[in-house]
Simulated scan of single mutants.
Amino acid sequence: MAISFQHGIDLPQSPHQVFTLLADYSKVPLWLKRCEGVAKQGSGPNKVGDKLRYAYCEGGRHGLMDGVITAYEEDRHMAYRYYDKMMQVIVEFRMEPNGEGTRLTHHIDITPHSFMAKLMSPMFKMKLPKQTIQTMENIRALLAKEAA
């Protein structure tokens, strides 16, 4: 059973500015604190089907997850599916014009697969809202810093 959470914020930056930040994988560790890096396998512009590698550190444990871009509509929508032997994580961002700014919505689904991940599900469910809200505030702060 998937553990899901969605959170939205209003930003003064345009959908293009927000999309550009989120699409720059070198900047993911600046707004997603447990991320050590995201690397695209291959070259060229990002597109649906491109393979990714996500390196993270959670609770002192380093890990890698394989990933794939599942949606990529410039200035509107991007989604990814990351997976390893423990779980699958679906990450989605939607950008909608909101006045002169953007309404950014972030949705996450975590589906535990391994016995250990299923045991940890209550902890994931408890931590996910706070982590997602903090991530969105980190995005807000980074956009403001880049605009200054």
Score class of each variant (00 low, 15 high):
Met86Glu: 06
Glu73Asn: 03
Asn46Arg: 04
Val38Met: 07
Leu128Val: 07
Ala55Asp: 13
Tyr82Phe: 07
Arg61Asn: 10
Phe115Gln: 15
Tyr54Ile: 05
Gly49Tyr: 13
Tyr56Leu: 07
His77Asp: 04
Gly99Thr: 10
Gly67Glu: 08
Glu36Cys: 02
Leu128Met: 04
Tyr56Trp: 15
Val91Asp: 00
Thr111His: 14
Leu104Ile: 13
Lys47Glu: 02
Val38Gln: 10
Val38Thr: 03
Tyr54Gly: 01
Arg103Ser: 12
Asp66Tyr: 11
Pro112Gln: 13
Met86Arg: 12
Ser121Trp: 01
Lys47Thr: 01
Tyr83Asn: 13
Met95Lys: 07
Arg81Gln: 06
Met87Ser: 04
Lys27Met: 15
His62Val: 05
Pro45Val: 02
Pro129Glu: 00
Arg103His: 11
Val68Trp: 09
His62Phe: 08
Thr111Gln: 05
Leu30Gln: 14
Gln88Cys: 09
Pro129Ser: 00
Glu36Asn: 08
Val38Pro: 05
Val28Cys: 14
His113Gln: 10
Lys47Leu: 01
Ala71Ser: 02
Ile90Tyr: 14
Lys40Gly: 01
Phe93Pro: 07
Arg53Met: 10
Lys118Asp: 12
Asn98Gln: 03
Leu104Thr: 11
Leu32Ala: 11
His107Met: 03
Gly59Gln: 05
Arg94Trp: 09
Tyr56Thr: 07
Tyr82Gln: 00
Gln41Pro: 08
Glu92Arg: 03
Val38Ala: 12
Tyr82Thr: 03
Cys35Met: 06
Glu92Lys: 03
Met95Pro: 12
Gly67Asp: 02
Thr70Gly: 15
Glu36Ala: 15
Met123Asn: 06
Asp66Asn: 11
Glu36Val: 05
Val89Glu: 04
Tyr80Cys: 01
His77Cys: 07
Ser114Ile: 08
Ile110Phe: 03
Tyr25Leu: 08
Val91Met: 01
Cys57Asp: 07
Thr111Gly: 05
Gly49Phe: 10
Leu30Asp: 14
Glu36Lys: 14
Lys27Trp: 11
Met87Gly: 11
Lys27Tyr: 10
Lys40Pro: 12
Lys33Val: 06
Tyr54Cys: 02
Ala55Lys: 12
Met120Gln: 09
Tyr56Val: 04
Glu36Ser: 02
Asp50Trp: 09
Glu92Phe: 01
Ser121Leu: 03
Lys125Tyr: 00
Tyr54Trp: 05
Arg34Leu: 08
Glu58Phe: 05
Gly42Ser: 06
Val28Tyr: 14
Asn46Asp: 14
Lys40Val: 09
Phe124Ala: 04
Arg34Gly: 10
Asp84Ala: 09
Ser26Asp: 14
Met78Gln: 14
Tyr72Gln: 10
Gly67Leu: 08
Tyr72Cys: 14
Glu58Asp: 09
Leu128Cys: 03
Ile90Ala: 04
Asn98Pro: 12
Met116Gln: 15
Gly37Ser: 15
Gly44Asp: 06
Asn46Gln: 09
Ala117Val: 11
Arg53Phe: 05
Ile110Met: 06
His62Trp: 11
